[in-house]
Design a protein around this nucleic acid. Structure first.
Lengths: 228, 228
DNA sequence: CGGTAATCTAGAACAAGTTTCAGACTTGAT
DNA sequence: ATCAAGTCTGAAACTTGTTCTAGATTACCG
């Protein structure tokens, strides 16, 4: 009955399926969502690629839906079927990049002695990676913070991915509520500091200091921390 | 020669002045910029009022430039002369509201024993105020995070204002670099936590926890703190 | 193979932010 | 009072995100 499966509003969109890359690492996504045809999978990848490419040049504004459609050889309507809005598209692009980064980070675990050091090192490493593609970073981060409720699931997924990366760096498997809260705060800081840097309101040095500062919170929640 | 003074690109708009950044940490606004005529001042206020009003209803999307112009009895072109973009307008609206809030907060200083407690209390109070106008909060915060470099001066001004509020709550006049960094991190967290709440990804309780968590950082930087 | 339902395409159409323009209006100086 | 320069107005035009439509394609079932 259906033809190429059906990436309809609940299917092909970035929301669902991603038997993709990082999943193995942490169960990146939801198990549901009808599988995509190979051609559909290919289309999806072409779209994400075009998105990242355009973003790498001019940033958020350079990612124009018509251009993405053209670049990825897909009709505008189809693009919208896969990604219901520009924001959805860019958030999906971020999920993609994050998964990639997580994989990279895993290969070379940070070497610090304390959890705080390792987390700070990891975040700075991620930050350095973003510096290499500032426009892309701009597009993704702007999309992330501008996203409204209709994109919550996807944005939440990105948050979770970030949390996993931080917990990984801490070397924790089973964090206490206190630690989870600290991790959330670190995520907030990382995110917000990134924005101030992207908009030219903070220097790289300042971002570094802020990250190091917030990472001290970890010591406070560590069982054997200084406050014990 | 000029007529009603000239709110031209460099005047009435919030853009100008930037002898700023950390300059006086309190010097809320720019001393320069040609003074506005009374009628211009009135127009500006009408515009900001209309903006806040529309935002209080539907949030970011409900603030449509044509409507703002109509509501404030100003031609569209004039609106754009005063505020070069919707983002500029909303950020200016935020400056307005922030100034108002700072005034309110000053009247009833927080009563906590420690600086951390006072800051947390102050932020939660501000948070409660925002809860009363969630749509307005949404519009302002989304504008703030979406702002690109062309709005940096204004956004920076908002950051500074926030910093002042926090320092006020701490009861500090002359913060150390360490403390300033902690304050920045608290600002990041406040901002980002607000976003997660607005987009429905975090509960009020969670925001509270995060704020309390990050405020503990203050203890770490306090001269007589536990780490000394 | 033929049928059918869903997908994809091309392109028009719509919405809201932003720009542009000609002409009427103000302001401050002479 | 007059004038020059800058401001405001009203309306059209332009841009880019998003929606809609009719028809061509594709996938899968029997």
């Amino acid at each position: 009955m259906p033809a190429e499966a059906k990436p309809s509003a609940k299917t092909a969109q970035p929301k669902t399926a991603q038997p993709k890359s990082a999943q193995a690492a942490v169960r990146t996504v939801q198990p549901d969502s009808p599988p995509l045809t190979e051609r559909q999978e290919a289309r999806r990848r072409r779209i994400l690629h075009a998105s990242a490419q355009l973003a790498s040049r001019g940033g958020f504004d350079a990612v124009q839906m018509r251009e993405v459609a053209e670049s990825s050889q897909v009709a505008l309507g189809t693009l919208y079927r896969y990604f219901p809005s520009k924001i959805h598209l860019l958030v999906a692009t971020m999920q993609d990049q994050l998964a990639h980064m997580h994989g990279t980070l895993r290969k070379k675990p940070p070497a610090g002695d304390t959890a705080a050091e390792r987390v700070a090192e990891t975040l700075m490493r991620a930050f350095r990676a973003l510096q290499r593609e500032p426009h892309l970073a701009d597009a993704m981060v702007r999309a992330l913070t501008f996203a409204d409720r209709s994109v919550s699931p996807e944005v939440d997924q990105v948050s979770r991915q970030t949390t996993v990366i931080i917990l990984d760096a801490m070397g924790l498997d089973d964090p206490t509520p206190d630690q989870l809260s600290a991790v959330r705060v670190i995520g907030h800081t990382w995110h917000s500091a990134l924005i101030t840097w992207l908009s030219g309101r903070a220097s790289i040095a300042q971002v570094k200091i802020d990250i190091e500062t917030v990472c001290r919170l970890i010591d406070l929640t560590e069982p054997g921390g200084k406050s014990t």
